[in-house]
Nucleic acid binder design. Sequence first.
DNA 1: TTAATAGTGTCTTTCAGACAATATTAT
DNA 2: ATAATATTGTCTGAAAGACACTATTAA
Lengths: 243, 243
Amino acid sequence: MVNEREFLADYQPAAYPAVAVTVDIVALTIRDGRLCVLLVERAEHPYAGRRALPGGFVREEALDGAALRELNEETGLTRVHLEQLKTYGDPGRDPRMRVFSVAYLAFAPLLPEPEAGSDASGAAWVPVEQATGLAFDHDTILADGLDRARAKLEYTPLATAFAGDEFTISELRQIYAVVWGEELHAGNFHRKVLSVPGFVESTGQTATRGGERGGPKPKLYRAGDAKLLHPALLRPGREEDVR
Amino acid sequence: MVNEREFLADYQPAAYPAVAVTVDIVALTIRDGRLCVLLVERAEHPYAGRRALPGGFVREEALDGAALRELNEETGLTRVHLEQLKTYGDPGRDPRMRVFSVAYLAFAPLLPEPEAGSDASGAAWVPVEQATGLAFDHDTILADGLDRARAKLEYTPLATAFAGDEFTISELRQIYAVVWGEELHAGNFHRKVLSVPGFVESTGQTATRGGERGGPKPKLYRAGDAKLLHPALLRPGREEDVR
DNA sequence: TTAATAGTGTCTTTCAGACAATATTAT
DNA sequence: ATAATATTGTCTGAAAGACACTATTAA
């Protein structure tokens, strides 16, 4: 019987078939009232010329670190909400070899024009409804990311991650409306948000001007300290997809 | 410029540092009124002799398939609810090499005595509060799995996956109580479960006898067709961990 | 001035939770 | 008979959603 040290010294990693692990990022932001996802155009085979989610191979780093690094390389963003989404590993999803992709979901508040990264000839924020025909299984990953994002708005204060440091209740409502794809009742939303403990806190300030087409100067708020919304903000009319 | 076929023909997977991907499974069941997790005792280095979550290397198969195969090898179970939990990939979590573990969560209704698997000298259902000091980062994985399971009972009919084909409302309540670790009001729970569309449906049958210490013969139900509970069954008194 | 917006008030319905009541059954 | 359990009823308060109303401001 070998002991642990001898076992590790003899261990031959190359005896196993080669696999690789990447991170791919579903980075979402809101631009011009539309929900947008960050896409790159692939410069290399496979899928050269096709649009894809930004990502790359994991190095000697933690998974979260790899995701943050890749996102930073593409956008320069560093203060974003990042969370692991799901891992995709069907054989054949990458023609080169067995590649497992750990997908991450990111929420970006403001919109610096994305910079072209090393393995991407271009990067751009694309409205999600136009983000189709992506490389690999990225259509599926994007769809899963959108599902997750929509669900998390219900029970977490994540919507504030789309807003700036200070925001109005109307801006917050627009975020919900854009992500969920349906208008929300302004009055009820306003009262609801203020009634959830820790969701937002007042800055005491007021915006310098009212809405585009009139209205009083709204009050400004910042994100509160809640990690969960209680009670939650449930999406209206979801009885259909319950079964 | 090479075309895609030439590129793939020249591609050298071995040029990248060796990594491996495993699946590890948090399989939960209820035994003797306690929430239990399936553990194996490791026969090989590293962590020989330590208890660990069942799992193994992913072969030429999909991730979900690998998880189902591993669980089946350990328990013989095949009709279980299996869902991907999270992927763990910190450098150094496995002393052999860079190993990424895709963790799965499984809910097993009945309790066949687990069989010893190929890379395990023993497997057993262990009450979760006694499942500590596991190999690798499996303590963390188990904790994440329990969090997920407790949360999913709130808004999905997953509790029925712990029950048999037919069950009473009391048995369902016991499942919630055991997983959440707190007693639930029998009367309110009863009315609530029956009021959620598609959660359970009546079999028209009645149990052959009442409770252990008396009481009328309860009616029998089976799982309904709902995929989400609406409205949800929220855990009582969770205002504390909202921040 | 006009129209849009911010913010508040009110009402109805639904639901959670506390509690009670009744019927049924194991011991 | 006693105690436990299943099931239903009642009440209160929280909360969602519909709707109305006032005040404020851009154009």
